[in-house]
Design a binder for these strands. Structure first.
Length: 409
DNA sequence: AATCCACAGGAAGCCCGGGAAC
DNA sequence: GTTCCCGGGCTTCCTGTGGATT
């Protein structure tokens, strides 16, 4: 009897998929078999990488493009094909993918690579050069052609991993039989300015740019996925164009378009509607924005939460943006209220920059002439959402009692 | 033209914890 | 245990700077 009950609970969710037939297709982890409007780039990458199959060294590649322009998907696609051909023809060839957002230091990248070949290297503890030696032995041993994909390579470089790139790009010279080449993927066009010129000339032998999708192209992408993702006839006509139009506004980000389509579907499903309407897309857009900021703010470290709350309070009492100095003195007061030690100005300045890159605040460098140079800081997301997310944290609850009037400067 | 504000942001170094090796 | 190495968070000290005011 109990069992029946439990089954019943899940049946409710499993059977009621009026909308989706395969939701996975709409997630970004999914690599599709067909990438509309990227034929040129795929062929380009493939032609550069192809020498690996003839036991020659492929040139290194740098790939640039805004988020959601299909860089990762294309590279992974080529990699998959390459691995297939290589194993069919019995050519020793390895195509390794690493995301430098997670694996963001020289040591960790190397350790990851070596572990990939089945040798054990601890994730900490060894001197770096020892890991280098290990890596070289790995690939020499099998006389492999190794293609390393470093996704979000700009993150690695900004955190001081440029040594790694230098060393890797130079390594080819003293390899006996193995071949090594690197594909770097970056969102940031200017990241090359952080690189040593020798590294750059080797790494950027080939450059490929992925331009943002326009609304028409996004429509094609969405249509392609929608075929697999949804049951027949659940999409009303305006849905895909609307998703595409919203995403086109946001720099042609295909991921956002897919997210929007998925969330719209989920909304429709939750309401037990058999059809996704344009209205679902509009609400879906709001939901994504709010959920996104909630999540980001909630996971912020305590110090950053206090800084963000300072910006919020200052924004409420002033019309224009506040200076970094204002934020800091407010921050110190709030630290006192919460009962946390305050950090140095220098440190807070860095945390402010982080909040800026997260898109939670806008920090614009302004020169006020005689009155100095400072960043004018304002909130970039709805203050209600931020307030809700921060005061949801037990430790921050006392901040609810602080009104902006009490603490104007 | 010189001054000078209110910071920006680089460099160096400290301290800690995680982990390996001896 | 002691002694290494790595990397993150943080502080201290520092030099650099756009432009309104003098």
């Amino acid at each position: 009897m109990h069992k029946e009950n439990i089954d019943g609970i899940f049946d409710q969710f499993l059977e009621n998929t009026l909308i989706f037939s395969n939701k996975e297709v709409l997630r970004h982890s999914y690599t599709p078999d067909y990438l509309p409007h990227r034929k040129e780039q795929i062929e380009n990458i493939a032609s550069i990488v192809a020498p690996a199959l003839k036991r020659e060294t492929p040139s290194n590649i740098l790939i640039f493009g805004k988020p959601g322009t299909g860089k990762t998907a294309c590279v992974k696609f080529v990699g998959k094909e390459l691995n297939e051909v290589a194993s069919r023809k019995d050519v020793p060839c390895a195509f390794l993918y690493l995301n430098c957002e997670m694996v963001d230091t020289q040591y960790r990248v190397l350790a990851n690579l070596v572990n990939h070949f089945g040798r054990e290297v601890p994730m900490a503890g060894w001197p770096t050069d020892k890991v280098y030696v290990e890596f070289r032995e790995c690939i020499e041993e099998r006389a492999q052609a190794v293609i390393i994909v470093l996704d979000e390579i700009d993150k690695l470089v900004k955190r001081g991993g440029d040594d790694l790139l230098y060393n890797l790009s130079r390594m080819n010279a003293d390899l006996q039989s193995a071949k090594l080449s690197i594909i770097g993927i970056s969102n940031d066009l200017k990241f090359t300015s952080y690189l040593d010129s020798r590294t750059l000339s080797s790494l950027g032998r080939e450059e490929i740019v992925f331009s943002p999708y326009d609304a028409e192209q996004l429509k094609d992408i969405l249509k392609e996925r929608a075929k697999i993702a949804f049951k027949k006839g659940v999409l009303s006509d305006g849905v895909i164009p609307l998703c595409a139009a919203f995403a086109a506004q946001e720099h042609g980000d295909a991921r956002k378009a897919l997210d929007l389509l998925r969330v719209s579907g989920e909304l429709a499903e939750r309401e037990k509607k058999g059809k996704i309407m344009e209205e679902h897309v509009k609400r879906g857009k709001e939901k994504i924005e709010i959920d996104g900021t909630m999540e980001v703010v909630k996971t912020l470290p305590a110090q950053s939460k206090i800084i963000l709350y300072s910006v919020l309070l200052l924004n409420r009492s002033k019309k224009d943006g506040s200076s970094a100095g204002d934020v800091y003195s407010m921050y110190k007061k709030l630290c006192d209220v919460v009962g946390l030690d305050d950090l140095s100005y220098r440190r807070v300045a860095d945390l402010i920059s982080e909040l800026d890159t997260l898109g939670l605040i806008n920090a614009v460098l302004m020169s006020r002439g005689r009155y100095g140079r400072t960043r004018e800081i304002s909130l970039a997301v709805p203050s209600k959402t931020v307030e809700k997310a921060i005061t949801g944290d037990e430790r921050m609850r006392v901040l609810m009692n602080v009104s902006s009037k009490q603490h104007t400067l």
